[in-house]
């Protein structure tokens, strides 16, 4: 079982690598941000698999922090992209 979990983590790393190609290529800032967001979620999944693989559940706290802060960079990005830089894309007409 344990070997399977680690193998699954390797596959996830590979999918993260694929998503990184989108970060590199763009073309827009939004594309890069989306790629990073997907890599972030993949990272959460990898940590969960590592924790289950090692039976070290303290590692879950890392996944908890990552998912708690998952939207941070994106929120900062959309705010910076709003009209005055402090707003929200929903406010704009």
């Amino acid at each position: 079982m344990s070997g399977w979990l680690l193998a699954a983590a390797v596959v996830l790393l590979a999918t993260a690598a694929a998503a990184l190609v989108r970060v590199a290529r763009g073309p827009d800032a939004a594309d890069r941000m989306m790629g990073a967001q997907l890599v972030g979620t993949t990272g959460v999944a990898v940590v969960i698999l590592l924790a289950a693989h090692e039976g070290n559940w303290a590692m879950l706290d890392v996944a908890l922090v990552l998912s708690l802060l998952a939207a941070f960079a994106s929120v900062a990005f959309v705010k910076a992209a709003s009209r005055d830089g402090q707003g929200d894309p929903e406010e704009d007409p």
Partner: peptide
Amino acid sequence: LIWILAVAASAVTAQTIARATLPGQADPE
């Protein structure tokens, strides 16, 4: 909890990025 937080984050990201990239929005670049 991890899953709930991730889903919420994903929803917020998807919604706001979708808005920000609609035509007519301020240029995200």
